[in-house]
Design a protein around this nucleic acid. Structure first.
Lengths: 147, 147
DNA sequence: AAAAAGACTACTAAATCTATATACTTTATA
DNA sequence: TATAAAGTATATAGATTTAGTAGTCTTTTT
């Protein structure tokens, strides 16, 4: 399961993606629109700024914005940035690898082998889907929903 | 990430799968072979017995065994039984569904839409892979490893 | 100078996970 | 029939993680 942090980050990026090219957007606006606790969101946006995904502007008229085009920000980046490993087992994670302490020989573990496959399937989707794609999907969903 | 409980359950089922058709296998044997805390494993095996996956026999010469052929036990069952939802978002889970409280309209949520896809990909693998398949994979891995 | 807005650090509360402890029941067998 | 082997059941403790809150500081605009 993704943490709330990761979910909030994704939601915020989608909102900021829609706003791409416009004036900076305030934390409190994002927070209230997406029903995210403001102080928590502050931390999350800060992390993403420090990672170079967002820019920020202080003072009156300040706020947050995407540094890159939403078409160049992929979901997998967000998961990793906010601490969510993609893999379901630590011994299968590319970016957060940890040895399973109960496992005698990783190279011959059948369970692991299956979860490598699962990771690859997940990774394929998440590394091909950008924030722009999410926004697109949303438009399609709204169109279908209204019919 | 899967819980230790789920991991231990999978490992134990693989061991019991290899032993299928033979005499019941003792908890302590499984525990020591797989480096699983015995008392913890007791609880896990008990859960799986109560779910009808395993039989148990008390007393001297007792132990645990698979009720069904390992080819008929699928990984997804084990995940669900040991409490691990397959989905990465609660609003996307088939068996552990929960509304995302921050989400205004689930039907038009683009993030959700992506994770439906991820769930389907994961589910496909886990519901097609049986304990027998895991054992098979292990044999292949060992063969390749020894070369 | 004052107000708006983000930056940074620390802390707390709650939940969950992992593991252990204890006492009980059933079964085989000497 | 007593004893040991093995599973059953429940409770609880400890550790870790997650989610959220609080407070203070800094920068920028007007």
């Amino acid at each position: 399961m993704l943490s709330k942090k990761t979910r909030y980050a994704l939601k915020a990026l989608v909102v900021l993606g829609k706003n791409f090219g416009g004036v900076p957007m305030q934390i409190s606006k994002i927070a209230s629109e997406e029903h995210i606790p403001k102080k928590f969101l502050e931390q999350i946006l800060l992390d993403m700024r420090n990672a170079g995904l967002l820019y920020s502007k202080k003072g009156s008229g300040g706020g947050y914005g995407l540094v890159k085009d939403p078409a160049e920000i992929f979901m997998v980046q967000v998961l990793r940035l906010t601490g969510g490993p993609v893999a379901l087992l630590p011994c299968v994670s590319l970016n957060f690898y940890q040895k399973c302490d109960e496992c005698a020989n990783e190279a011959t573990c059948g369970v692991r082998d299956v979860f490598v496959e699962v990771r690859n399937a997940t990774l394929k989707i998440l590394s091909e889907t950008s924030i722009a794609d999410v926004i697109n999907r949303e438009e399609i969903l709204i169109k279908n929903f209204e019919e």
